[in-house]
Structures are given as structure tokens and as C-alpha cells.
Amino acid sequence: MSEIDIKRISYLAKLKLPSEKEEFYSQSLVDIIQWVDNLKKIDTSNVKPLHNVTEATVSIRNDDIEKNNSTEDVLNNAPERAQNFFKVPKVVE
């Protein structure tokens, strides 16, 4: 197994590991990945991946509008808002 780039993985997950914990998580990740590595022993070349045990869905909607909530219902848990917007520090592109 190759090195795990813990900085990259944590950044992708938008987590900022405190430096003193980086090693802890990194080691733990290495251990677990090694532990699950036994799957590589199985020949699955002819096996289709299984995403879900429910095979078919009956949940396909008609194109109808339903409104069951107010704008306020959606916004009232917001940590910060400005009128009916969610508010965040300026996004620079």
C-alpha cells in the first residue's frame, strides 16, 4: 500500500486536522486500509458491483409542483442570514 497523503485527503473532506492529531489519524487510516486490504485477494473480474439491494424503484415523480414549506422554514436554522439569503464571507473566484 502506498503512503496516504493525509493532508490531501483531509483537505478534500474539508477537515483541518490539528498538527498534533495528524499522525494519529494518519496511522489509524493506514491501519484500517491495511485491514481492509484482504479484499484484494478475491477475484471479482466477473462480478458486477452491487450499489443497493433494492433493485428497482417505483419512485418516479410526475412533473408536479408541491410547496409544503415556507422560505422561513428553510432559513430559520441558518447560523447567519441577511433577509432571505444565507450569508457567508465573500467568495472570491
Binding site: 415523480r61 408536479d64 414549506n69 422560505t71 428553510v74 432559513l75 432571505n84
Partner: peptide
């Protein structure tokens, strides 16, 4: 099932 509409008031066409 929220409306697919342009030009509404902010966050008006938003459900959970």
C-alpha cells in the same frame, strides 16, 4: 417538487 422558476424572491423555490 419545488418550482423550477427564474426570477423569484430569494430562496422562495427551496424545499428541505
Amino acid at each position: 417538487s419545488s418550482p423550477n422558476l427564474f426570477g423569484s424572491e430569494p430562496n422562495e423555490n427551496v424545499n428541505f
